[in-house]
Design a protein around this nucleic acid. Structure first.
Length: 298
DNA sequence: CGACAATGTGTAA
DNA sequence: TACACCTTGTCGA
């Protein structure tokens, strides 16, 4: 799925284009008809993200809770007020960037949303535009109490980086014999990291992915947290996961080409950008793990 | 056209 | 550990 940075961008975007608006909420696909009816015709108050979870709060105190899972995505469109609203969701290629909707820019006579294409789980429509959700693993209408129980299952979010979060992460990471690569994917330990950031921050920190949490020095865990905060914050800014610094980019303008954006993710068999050793690939917990056996030996 | 993978997660065995 | 979930782009026949 889109990792935490994409969900935080979605939260911001929903606030930008829909907050304060009365929304029609429908389920063209039908699977979410009941939950949609509970929200239909109510005003969106705000939107928040924690890790990979998105919460859209309505004025009737109900919340639309969405988790995109492996292949969920939101698409946006509308009038000029939607200019810059990106479609955000499951990437289909390495380094794929968000697709911006510029329909409103040269089409001020916005006449309403198009007919739904494909399996649209939920559609939000305001007077100015629309948003379609497809393929999400979770899409449900919940109460405040239910939202609180979702949050209770999640660890600290590096994109909130509140006081005490770094120590909470450090404590949780050092408490288990689980390999650090698995701990980074445990949303109770750190919320919002996915398979790309997991591989990339471990490389950036020179950490052996198989090192048990119990063997990780506390200082290394703190550096790992801080680097995750930094690299995911860049992701929120850029709308893309870029973990390589500019000296690794062949393009001189703007962001790097997709193939220059990562150190190890999906680079198995290719030379490590630092030492030339072939990048390794293994399965860990049914997900692919990429790392440089030479650089990541700490 | 079918098989398969994909930046996930929950549940059963 | 396996698979169910459920969507779409890519790749090979």
């Amino acid at each position: 799925m889109p990792e935490g940075h994409s969900v935080h961008r979605l939260a911001r975007q929903f606030g930008d284009v829909f907050a304060g608006e009365r929304l029609a909420v429908t389920s063209p696909q039908g699977r979410f008809a009941q939950g949609a009816a509970l929200l239909d015709g109510h005003i969106l108050i705000g939107s928040t993200a924690h890790g990979k979870h998105l919460f859209l709060e309505f004025e009737n105190s109900l919340i639309l809770h969405v988790h995109l899972g492996l292949y969920g995505a939101w698409n946006f469109g509308g009038d000029a007020s939607f200019r810059g609203a990106s479609s955000i969701g499951a990437p289909r290629r390495v380094g794929e960037r968000e697709v911006r909707d510029d329909a409103g820019a040269d089409n001020p006579a916005y006449a309403g949303p198009p007919d739904p294409v494909g399996a649209v789980r939920v559609r939000l429509t305001s007077a100015h535009g629309w948003a379609d959700l497809r393929g999400a693993t979770t899409c449900e209408t919940i109460t405040d109490a239910e939202a609180a129980s979702v949050l209770a299952r999640l660890g600290p979010d590096p994109l909130q980086n509140l006081a005490g979060n770094r120590e909470s992460f450090t404590e949780a990471a050092l408490a288990k014999r689980t390999p650090i690569a698995a701990l980074l994917m445990d949303q109770k330990v750190i919320a919002g990291v996915g398979n790309v950031y997991r591989a990339e921050v471990l490389f950036r920190q020179g950490l052996d992915p198989w090192l048990p949490g119990t063997a990780l020095p506390a200082e290394a865990a703190r550096r790992l947290w801080d680097d995750t905060v930094a690299v995911m914050s860049d992701g929120v800014r850029d709308g893309r996961i870029v973990t390589t610094p500019p000296r690794y980019w062949t393009a001189s303008e703007g962001l790097p080409a997709p193939e220059d954006s990562h150190f190890v993710y999906r680079r198995q068999g290719l030379d490590c950008r630092n030492c030339g050793t072939p990048v390794a690939l293994a399965e860990l917990g049914a997900r692919k793990l990429y790392w440089c056996p030479s650089c990541q030996s700490a």
